[in-house]
Design a protein around this nucleic acid. Structure first.
Lengths: 159, 159
DNA sequence: GGCAATTTAATTGTATACAATACTCTGGAA
DNA sequence: TTCCAGAGTATTGTATACAATTAAATTGCC
């Protein structure tokens, strides 16, 4: 136990990101209150507005969520009238998520609302771009480490 | 509906942060597998290792979590032997969270493990500092907007 | 053509998050 | 002293997340 340094919460990038993520979550939940959408429901709708219909799997690829999360989320979106879930005719394993007429109609209202609320944040495009590119780097590192399974293998090997 | 611009998932800072937060979560969950700690349990332990005992409220202030989340989380930490939950003698409304002997003993092991795993990420201190200071700015903006309740008031006023 | 391996969703079980509510305790005002 | 507003924690209900398993459909390979 020679190389031990204290780990302080306030110095942890992970906590900054975790905390920011929760704040964004609340921000959009409030912003979208008129539409009754949660943040995860909202990002699902964003993807569908870009390109519907999509299978659960395709949607999950974009959102980095699996069917364990998406199935109940999509059932709630269906109950609230945003999407319909239809078994594919050509491959009955798949479920296609279609937009309803209501979702198509309300798309621009949501886009507009989001645009207005984001303006309140007063962040320039450059600030946002710079931050996002740094986040890409971090995420790539995290993916690399997980993918190479370094965490459980290489660290243990050292000990 | 004049000012409508499409909202694309890949251009959303919120999604970059949301996604990074989930990846960090997995990273630490793997890193801490030998100790059986989840990420939220780990950050709770970090705070307690800095300064225990703390009341549920004090811990919640640091972690930005309320008793609805912390009470069950702390019960699980207690069941696994990391903390003890003790009603304060001087104010019976409060519950003090103490470290167990096991937690004190294992602290440096966890610190060391975290240090090693973080090294695998290959991020310089400067990179981390720069990112964290940008995140502070974003979080302040989000706090301001929520606090001033701009989302539901000022935007609606415009319409 | 038949069947094992794979793919796709759904389900189950555990652990966060958080709003809203309930409950108990404390300190102060009448 | 009694009463009550407020503080601190727990509980309830809803909605994510995700690992692991299940079940059904499809594909590949012989």
């Amino acid at each position: 136990m020679a190389d031990v340094n204290p780990v302080l919460l306030d110095e942890q990038l992970c906590f900054s990101i975790y905390s920011a993520s929760k704040k964004f979550n609340h921000f959009y939940q409030s912003a979208l209150a008129p539409f009754g959408l949660t943040y995860p429901q909202y990002i699902a709708m964003l993807v569908l507005w870009e390109k519907a219909p999509l299978t659960v799997h395709q949607l999950g690829d974009r959102l980095e969520l699996d069917s364990g999360t998406l199935t109940p989320l999509l059932k709630r979106l269906e109950k609230q009238g945003w999407v319909s879930r239809v078994r594919s005719q050509t491959d009955e394993r798949q479920v296609l998520i279609h937009l309803t007429e209501m979702a198509t109609t309300k798309r621009d209202e949501v886009y507009s609302r989001i645009g207005q609320c984001q303006n309140l944040l007063g962040m320039s495009g450059d600030e946002i771009d710079s931050m996002m590119s740094e986040l890409v780097t971090v995420k790539e590192q995290l993916d690399n480490v997980s993918h190479r399974r370094l965490i459980t293998k290489e660290v243990d090997k050292v000990n």
